[in-house]
Design a protein around this nucleic acid. Structure first.
Lengths: 345, 345
DNA sequence: TTGAAAGCGGTACCAG
DNA sequence: CTGGTACCGCTTTCAA
């Protein structure tokens, strides 16, 4: 094994090029570039030859901030978050920023812990995308940590959180669900049901309310007992749909169209419908939300509401870099994608 | 907006607690903990009161290495990678490490660029998970960069790359495909086809060869013209399957079972089969690889080969922390999961 | 334009 | 066990 070689430092480059470290610094990472062409060239060349690589930590400690954006989300394995993460990484790459990422796994304690670690890093911005799954807008502790960070000059961008004291990328869940209701009515839906993740989550509440609003605008109503709450997971969707079907049968109430508040849940729900001996589409129209990639590959293809998740991520980074003194606010529009799971009836 | 407050520093804590920075450092981030109970407690308390947060960059520059693992993958939006990433983040969290992540988007130039950035960070380890999609094991430049990093004391862990001069988490693609062939033969498959991503990719080559080996072990063969190459994406699967179906029909050759070398492609392939007027399962048995979560939610549920991706990620981190001087090597077993897309025939 | 030198926030060796 | 201090690698006044 090769001897533990040390990294080449700026000082070494400077000496090799016969200039001061100050000049070398200006030549290589030049801010107020005031170095003569030839010297700059020479320094860069020697840096290249020696294989010099700037020490980011040293730069950070000297400058006070790291060329980094920190991302907190609840679960990167969830396609919803991985799509956002993908956009964030793209945006960061465009802005020559690094990305530090951590998953809270839906644990508040962990979330707080990661936030502390993030703060220790002095990133340019902290992007929080995990809150769709959290009970509260933010726990007071989290808000406090975020605020403390903001007060030391950091930028906080929150994705999908309704009103926020921080920069906000606001996904139009309410409006999307509202438009979905209209579309489903247009397709002949008459007896609606909803399977939702916990309604204490803003996202779910917004989607349900939007859906209800959309129905109401056309003179339809959504019975309270036609809304089933379950876990915000694929399995939750399965269980929730079972429950909904059972309830409707017990009441002898008709049911032809079900809105499930997320695609992941909807996939589970579709399976539940089949296991119940019914057909998705023919018997029960089924629509999800998020328009995850596979909505078009399941059978029947699933109607959903598209959120431009990748763009959401990129926008978040751009906001993080914005210079506005006021917290910015960006409304991200959603739109309905009709597919075979909600045929004309 | 609150005035730009500065972060509390160790020096301030030390002064407030009436001790030297040396002692404060030992008390708070104690390495060779040799501080009296009471003083340590006092220091910690004042740190708490002042809201002190260590400056990670300063620690890094002083110590020479950052408590970080850097992850390079090709596309976090791909469930394959996001599952690995999830495991990595879990492993990192367990080891109190941060995670820096970047996506190469399958661009060699970008990959090299991100590697440079990673090296600038002095992370404890670099984990490369993107290579399944790269043409070569590694481009010489990438290997050189990795080697240079390793020579400065860094640890490199490669996921799924066949022989490697670095630590390796070796996913048993060949063996998995081989076992899949056996399973499909047991289900009565007789006329096989394969839709694959580019065979210049190790992963695809291994899977095809494994499949062929499995068939051969039972006296079956796989015709060369029964293998179609396409893009390693969902759409590639669609196109590839179209091509395969067309070819077989042109030749008047029978086809009852198709192995697609990834689930993503298989989802596209399933749609192609349907668009061709055939039924997945009844007419054509279809199997994928990776056992992505949704394999069980599509209809019919898709037979696949499971890779314990989350564990792969965690293992990668553990290897990264390993102290062995020799490059370590971990074989990760895969196993067949039979579902409705490959019924008994 | 270039160089000297004072930090940036911590760590760790060396005395005491 | 504690404090003094050199130093980690780089940036940035301040002079020259």
């Amino acid at each position: 094994m090769a001897a533990q070689q040390r990294q080449v430092t700026l000082t070494e480059v400077a000496r090799a090029a016969g200039v001061s470290t100050a000049t070398a610094s200006r030549a290589i990472n030049g801010s107020s570039r005031r170095v003569s062409e030839d010297i700059a060239a020479r320094v860069k060349r020697t840096a290249e030859e020696l294989g010099y690589l700037p020490n980011l930590s040293a730069q950070t400690v000297a400058k006070g901030a790291s060329p980094t954006v920190a991302v907190l989300l609840s679960d990167i394995a969830d396609p919803y978050f991985s799509a956002i993460a993908s956009g964030i990484m793209a945006g960061a790459s465009e802005a020559a920023l690094m990305v530090t990422m951590a998953a809270s796994e839906r644990s508040g304690a962990r979330e707080l812990q990661m936030l502390r670690t993030f703060r220790s890093q002095h990133p340019r911005a902290i992007i929080v995308a995990g809150s769709r799954d959290e009970e509260n807008t933010h726990s007071p502790e989290v808000t406090a940590a975020l605020r403390a960070y903001a007060e030391t000059g950091g930028r906080v961008v929150v994705i999908s959180q309704g009103p926020s004291p921080f920069d906000l990328v606001d996904i139009q869940n309410h409006d999307g669900a509202r438009k979905l209701a209209h579309a489903l009515l247009d397709r002949g839906g008459a007896h609606f049901g909803v399977v939702s993740g916990r309604v204490t989550l803003h996202t779910n509440a917004d989607r349900i309310n939007g859906f209800r609003t959309g129905l109401a605008e056309r003179g339809h109503t959504l019975a309270d007992d036609a809304i089933v709450e379950a876990e915000f997971t694929r399995d939750g969707g399965y269980v929730g749909m079972q429950e909904l079907l059972a309830r409707r049968e017990d009441l002898g109430a008709p049911l032809d169209t079900v809105f499930v508040t997320s695609d992941m849940m909807a996939f589970g729900a579709a399976t539940a419908i089949r296991d119940h001996g019914l057909s998705v589409g023919a018997d029960i129209s089924l629509a999800g939300f998020d328009n995850v990639g596979l909505t078009q590959d399941v059978t029947p293809a699933m109607t959903s509401v598209e959120i431009p998740l990748h763009e959401v991520g990129r926008s978040a980074v751009r906001m993080a870099l914005g210079s506005g003194t006021e917290p910015a606010h960006l409304a991200v529009q959603t739109h309905v994608v009709l597919r075979a799971s909600t045929p004309q009836r």
